[in-house]
Design a protein around this nucleic acid. Structure first.
Length: 551
DNA sequence: GTGGAGCACTTTTTT
DNA sequence: AGTGCTCCAC
């Protein structure tokens, strides 16, 4: 593995408590992978190591990389989500009477809650989750619902996702689960909450090694209980903490790195960190001002077409290798989901393929199940010719149709595939699918323009990034009262740093929000980006009356 | 059990 | 504007 100086230090240090500041595009996953492999090569037993993530996607990516590097997949350390680790520990350490619980999924949660109280089911679940994770008190109306919910779960022998962690922590505190790991590695540490933090401490052996990777400037999930303070107060909690800064960014050109570096210094809750681009300077950030959301969509369409340099899109499908950029080079990011609809419609109409994250759990589960079932049935024919699975995936259209997560699962199923038992295999597969999330199923390999919220863009990168709705009110989002302006700034920072070559912001003078036509000024975040990094382009509505530009 | 009127609500999302 | 829900009539 080819590591730069600080990546190597982070991977090989034998300091006991380390915090690796891993800004956007600095090779975090590579470094974590290197660290795991380094420990194994040093002779640390896999059983002594746990690498924890918050999402399955991250876990799968990391595991895949470790497997690729080790060229084997036996005797791996635990690499997975906090929830999976807790699930395994509970199955191992709970009493025989208790250990046979089932997981209370979101669907089941909704079912139980709505039997108690029909209205605002989602909000109630959110409140309960918040209460369990952060001790945010429950008001009088929700408390009895919560109590009945807990009772019902007990009756049905269910544990919800929060319970997995809480129950494990309880056993750890009662010493019924011993400290198990001498090396714990945490990914995306800025997303941690108090429960998870306590859990890590309880599972780490005395004088064990802890390395956390993350970036406080990308903490965007406080609304679901993450506490950036836990990251920022690490030096207090561990006076012997070693800070390592991954300072080289391999993703974005200089303008984007410098502009985002300066932008984020407007925040106070952070560690100062240095990030340098390894890439040549390219064009500055472009800011368009347009009339309304339809002009916004048309601007995106026009800019995409211009960069594709083709009007006949069927040609682009055929000659992918010959063009420097394709549909998948572009992403459109917005603060809210519903802003994406008009943009999607506009691109759809012009024959530009788009991909979005589907939120409809029931539908995709059955659809994907069918897709993978078909794939396995197809593959079983190919078994006669001994065609390796990877070649099969690449030669079929599956590579484009399936997300990376699906391919991973398919590979696993196929590996254990034996003649006869197809139905059982698929049954097992369906069990795995129920734990997948919309993001896991985002078809990364399909050649289409990505339409995403700023939140769901985290971790991704694109040559050309549009951030639409750069309007005060949406960015930062202040249409409801309890805005955390620093978190909103971090969210925009995440958006900016998705861009490799070009960042294009679009502000619309007017917009329909909740059925009302409103006029918003350009985002107040504009003033936090030094002027020399931005080119402003005003597009007047030709038909309409002349309006004074807002900047 | 269905369909339509009436009403409320409207940020972000993982396990 | 658009969605999702309840409630009531059939």
């Amino acid at each position: 593995m080819n590591l730069n100086k600080n990546q190597k230090i982070a991977a090989e240090t034998s300091d006991r408590i380390c915090c690796v500041l891993a800004g956007p595009g600095t090779g975090k996953t590579l470094t974590i992978t290197a660290k795991i492999i380094h420990l194994l090569e040093k002779g640390v037993s896999p059983k002594e190591i746990a690498a924890l993530t918050f999402t399955q996607k991250a876990a799968i990516e990391m595991k895949q990389r470790v497997i690729t590097n080790l060229r084997q997949e036996k005797n791996l350390p635990f690499i997975g989500t906090f929830h999976l680790l807790c699930l395994k520990l509970l199955r191992e350490f709970l009493s025989d009477r208790e250990k046979h619980f089932q997981i209370c999924t979101r669907t089941k949660q909704k079912e139980i809650i709505s039997a108690i109280h029909k209205k605002n089911v989602d909000r109630i679940i959110e409140k309960i989750t918040n209460f369990k994770n952060t001790n945010t008190p429950l008001d009088e109306k929700i408390l009895p619902i919560y109590e009945k919910y807990e009772e019902k779960k007990k009756e049905l022998n269910l544990l919800d996702f929060d319970d997995l962690l809480l129950k494990t922590l309880e056993l750890v505190n009662k010493k019924q689960i011993p400290a198990l790991f001498s090396h714990i590695i945490i990914d995306e540490f800025q997303d941690i909450n108090k429960i998870q933090y306590a859990l890590i401490k309880g599972l780490l052996k005395e004088n064990g090694y802890l390395t956390v990777f993350g970036d406080p400037d990308q903490a965007i999930y406080s609304f679901r209980g993450s506490e950036i303070e836990l990251f920022l107060e690490l030096p207090k909690d561990f006076p012997d903490l070693t800070l390592i800064n991954l300072s080289l960014n391999y993703r974005s050109q200089k303008n984007i790195i410098e502009a985002s570096n300066k932008f984020i210094t407007a925040n106070t809750k952070r560690f100062s960190k240095k990030i340098e681009s390894t890439r040549e300077q390219k064009s500055p950030i472009i800011l368009f001002e347009v009339e309304d959301e339809y002009e916004e969509a048309k601007t995106i369409l026009r800019e995409i077409k211009q960069r594709l340099g083709a009007t006949d899109f069927t040609e682009l499908y055929k000659n992918k290798e010959e063009t420097s950029c394709s549909f998948s080079s572009f992403a459109v990011l917005t603060r809210t989901n519903n802003q994406l609809k008009i943009i999607k419609d506009c691109l759809d109409k012009e024959g530009i393929p788009v991909k979005t994250i589907k939120k409809d759990t029931e539908h995709w589960t059955s659809k994907i199940t069918k897709k993978i079932t078909d794939a396995i049935v197809n593959y079983s024919d190919k078994l006669f010719t001994n065609m390796p699975l990877q070649s099969f995936i690449e030669s079929s259209n599956l590579y484009e149709e399936l997300s990376n997560t699906e391919i991973f699962i398919l590979s696993n199923i196929a590996k254990t595939y034996k003649d006869g038992k197809l139905i059982e295999q698929i049954q097992a597969l369906i069990d795995e699918l129920t734990s997948l999330t919309p993001v896991d199923l985002f078809p990364e390999n399909i050649n289409a323009v990505s339409l995403l919220t700023l939140h769901s863009s985290k971790g991704l990168e694109f040559p050309v990034v549009f951030i639409a709705g750069f309007d005060e009110g949406l960015i930062p989002y202040t249409l409801t009262s309890d805005t955390d302006i620093e978190e909103e700034r971090r969210l925009f920072y995440v958006g900016m740093t998705r861009a490799m070559d070009e960042l294009i912001l679009i502000h619309s003078r007017q917009r329909l929000i909740n059925g009302k036509k409103i006029t918003l000024p350009v985002s107040s975040f504009l003033k936090d980006i030094p002027e020399e990094y931005v080119i402003k382009k005003v597009r007047q509505n030709r038909a309409g009356p002349k309006q004074k530009a807002l900047f």
